[in-house]
Design a protein around this nucleic acid. Structure first.
Length: 489
RNA sequence: CGGGGCGUAGCGCAGCCCGGUAGCGCACCUGCUUUGGGAGCAGGGGGUCCCAGGUUCAAAUCCUGGUGCCCCGACCA
């Protein structure tokens, strides 16, 4: 099958969809806005899941599971929270179906109406804090460090595979602390976990920072985030970590007794990343030939292709190589398909983004060599069969590093300091706008005005921004710090 | 929620204007020849033409009403 991918330069959105479909990651389902994550796409999610889960446990968290349904009344207990989510909730109103009297099929049984409607969780703060009330009585119960891997539903108007689907998979951490200081520390700790994961595993450079009031999570005191830049110059919010203050503790009356026997509200955090990360992974590294995966998240790191097809002589050498690679913890697949020719296989594995390809034929065996191809640069070279596992292991490290450096240099190159609103507008309208570093007067009015004119929003106020006197790019009022603007997904 | 598009074989599409009982490419099956960058030839299997109603001797095609999905915008991870 000739699988043509729309070039990025022709239509970036179409390119993205082509990659998702042709690399067999996911497809649209019969349900509006919901995707089927196919085995290869899910394998990537499992890699993400496994590594993050390890990192959560290393930082003292445990997993638990809370219900999919939230009583409607819970959602309305925190005023800002309900405001933020009310417009995108799926609501369960009945619990039974029946055959329709006219025999035309099944209908909702009107007598099965629920006393109180159930909301399918758009996020779990409310059900979890309602539960925590019973779990937390004393300072000895704190901190409570719980994570949940779950699906959530947000009835978005417009969806895009992985980037925004009606139902998506994610993890949500929900922690409770005795002091504000501890909770803030936790919020930042998890933000750092996300940043470390994004950079070291996804090879996706991120900017850490804090959201403005407009972009803050509904119900949070502060929202911290990691922001990445995609190849088309749009930003992707890749993870968020919220300091919730005592908002949910107050809404759900979660108090604890301090050492000196005082009743106090607990301090909270929540933090999450979702299957959206896979979208970020695609749009950070992939090219017109298909998916490009960083070795640390590739379900298959190395594929071996027999030239022209499997044979006893080739198989014997391949199995030895595989054994040695596996001993080094490298995942390797031998393409023993008899039907397709090498050229087809090359294209197929490139489409799937497998980092390293080895090709072995009679001609190589005679010279004790093997052909090695790397997906990131498309370079090919021949290597000695002796010590090939070391060659491959090193190459995987090189590819991981190269992908990160390449993405980082792109990000840096596409981050522009701008000091006039004319320059700002011109940049936003350019082909690949990127991050715009500009002074802002700190008001929501300005932020909203800029958004209305340019569609760019403040992605974050970066942590590592040095103080610098200047004037707001829009209002001309004084400012002592630049913030990052971008169009975003 | 506004604007646009599309529902015909597993996938991508043509046929519809001008009604006559469904076709092309890929995929799939069989055989032979091939095989170091997406193979060639020959043969073969597979379709309630989104649903319902209407017009007609006859509907994928015309009419009416549904419905689903996708894309583009405003809202969001």
């Amino acid at each position: 099958m000739a699988k043509e991918i729309t070039p990025r330069s022709t239509d970036y959105a179409q390119w993205y969809q082509d990659i998702v479909k042709k690399a067999n990651l996911a497809e649209n389902s019969a349900v509006r806005g919901c995707m089927v994550i196919k085995p290869y796409g899910f394998a990537i999610w499992e890699k993400i899941h496994d590594q993050l889960d390890r990192m959560f446990k290393e930082t003292g968290h445990v997993n638990a599971y809370f219900p999919l349904f939230i009583p409607k009344s819970f959602l309305s207990k925190e005023a800002q929270h309900v405001d933020g989510f009310a417009k995108e909730c799926a609501v369960v109103t009945h619990h039974r179906l029946m055959n329709s009297p006219d025999g035309s099929g099944v209908i909702v049984d009107p007598t099965s109406k629920l006393e109180e409607e159930l909301i399918i969780r758009p996020t779990s703060e409310t059900i979890i804090w309602n539960t925590y009330r019973d779990w937390i009585k004393s300072y000895r119960d704190l901190p409570l460090l719980i994570n949940q891997w779950a699906n959530v539903v947000r009835w978005e108007m417009r969806t895009r595979l992985f980037l925004r689907t009606t139902e998506f998979l994610w993890q949500e951490g929900h922690t409770a602390h005795a002091t504000k200081g501890e909770a803030v520390e936790e919020t930042l700790r998890m933000l750092n976990v996300y940043a470390e994961f994004a950079e070291n595993y996804m090879a996706m450079p991120v900017i850490k920072g804090v959201k403005t009031a407009n972009e803050r999570f509904a119900g949070a005191v502060d929202t911290y985030c990691i922001e990445a830049l995609m190849q088309d110059g749009k930003a992707l919010q890749a993870g968020t970590s919220h300091f919730l203050g005592q908002n949910f503790a107050k809404a759900f009356d979660v108090k604890f007794l301090t050492e000196d026997n005082n009743q106090e509200f607990v301090w909270a955090t929540s933090w999450g990343v979702s299957t959206r990360l896979i979208g970020g992974l695609i749009m950070t590294h992939s090219d017109d030939e298909g998916l490009v995966l960083p070795p640390n998240l590739a379900p298959i790191q190395v594929v071996i292709i027999p030239i022209p097809k499997p044979s006893p002589e080739i198989d014997e050498v391949v199995h030895k190589i595989m054994k040695n690679l596996k001993a080094k913890g490298i995942t390797v697949q031998y393409d023993q398909d008899m039907k397709n020719r090498p050229g087809f296989k090359f294209a197929e594995h490139e489409m799937k983004g497998i980092p390293v390809r080895l090709a072995l034929g009679q001609r190589d065996l005679e010279k004790n060599e093997i052909e090695v191809a790397r997906r990131d640069t498309k370079e090919k070279f021949t290597a000695s069969l002796d010590g090939i596992e070391e060659t491959v292991a090193q190459l995987l490290l090189d590819i991981q590093e190269n992908l990160f450096q390449r993405a980082k240099s792109f990000r840096n190159q596409k981050t522009t300091k701008v000091d006039t609103f004319d320059d700002f507008k011109a940049l936003v309208d350019s082909d690949i706008p990127g991050f715009i570093s500009a002074h802002w007067d700190g008001t929501s009015e300005t932020e909203i005005a800029i958004k209305e004119i340019t569609k760019a929003t403040i992605r974050c106020i970066p942590f590592d921004q040095e103080e610098e006197e200047g004037t707001c790019v829009y209002s001309g009022k004084p400012s002592n710090k630049r913030v990052l603007f971008a169009k975003s997904y």
